[in-house]
């Protein structure tokens, strides 16, 4: 039986980042989460498997903490969770991540389809699917909003700038889906409970033969601070607040 592998990234929740007055970034309060769009990749995997009856798995590469993500990932349906947890993930760029994922995919027996999201919510670099495709030398189709799978043949609809494109491709291949086509449902209680019993496989960077040295050298990371006036009308009834706002806008010359 063939296996469909959904790749996802465990990211810091951007809403928990604290930007200090000196524009340094405090991540100590940030919780981890599966990148929103990657939930759509998992959902797409489940939808394709429902058409084909293939086996399903998830694959992630992160710091050793990434193990915490497996329960959430597997509660979304896939049967097996593969993970690579290594401190090197802290500095990994898309070059390193794609090498780790591609090497891991080679070890997962019978993988015939890899499904990724377009990009992760932290970097949003949108490199992983095409890079993994290149490393495996499998054909790759990105920006997919719809797929029909019959045996090894996939008909996919891509949403690009100004056009919809329909293509066909045979497995094995890599697909990157857009969230629009694959809204992820919230896992039910039963799914969450059974996720804890699903098999997990840890893989190591060394055993996969990957070089953890990134090509990107980070020089600096600075938080963005909005410099706005923050004149907010909170009290009074709606018409008072509207009057205050309109007079403020008038003063700004916005209504002439």
């Amino acid at each position: 039986m063939a296996t469909i592998v959904a790749c996802y990234k465990w990211v810091l929740d951007e809403e928990d980042l604290v930007i200090n007055p000196d524009r340094s970034i405090d991540v100590s309060h940030a919780r981890g989460k599966i990148s929103e769009f990657d939930k759509s990749a998992i959902e797409a995997t489940m939808q394709v498997a429902a058409q084909t009856g293939d086996a399903t798995a998830t694959l992630t590469f992160g710091t050793p903490d990434v193990r915490k993500s497996l329960k959430d990932a597997l509660s979304r349906g896939p049967a097996t969770g593969y993970w690579v947890g290594d401190a090197a993930a802290c500095d990994a760029d898309a070059l390193v991540t794609s090498q780790v994922l591609a090497s891991a995919i080679r070890t997962i027996d019978g993988t015939s389809l890899v499904i990724c999201a377009e990009g992760a919510s932290d970097t949003y670099a949108r490199q992983i699917a095409p890079r993994v495709g290149a490393l495996l030398d499998w054909p790759t189709v990105t920006s997919v909003i719809e797929m029909k799978v019959e045996g090894d043949s996939i008909t996919a609809t891509r949403k690009l700038d100004g056009c919809l494109e329909t293509v066909t491709v045979n497995r094995p291949c890599v697909i990157a889906v857009l969230p629009a086509g694959y809204e992820p449902p919230i896992p039910g209680l039963k799914a969450v409970l059974s996720a804890g019993k699903k098999p997990l496989h840890e893989l190591g960077i060394a055993e996969l033969g990957c070089d953890p040295a990134p090509a990107a050298k980070v020089l600096s990371s600075q938080g963005f601070i909005a410099n706005r006036r923050n004149v907010i009308f909170v009290d009074g009834d709606a018409s008072d607040k509207v009057t205050s706002l309109v007079s403020a806008l008038k003063k700004e010359g916005m209504l002439s």
Binding site: D93, A94, L95, S98, T123, Y124, A125, R126, Q127, I128, A129, P130, R131, V132, G133, A134, L135, T140, T142, S143, P214, A215, A216
Partner: peptide, 16 residues
């Protein structure tokens, strides 16, 4: 898409 595939085949860095 094309840029990241090229970077993948070349095994080099890429800034998006």
């Amino acid at each position: 898409d094309l840029a990241a595939r090229v970077a993948g085949y070349l095994g080099c860095g890429m800034a998006s």
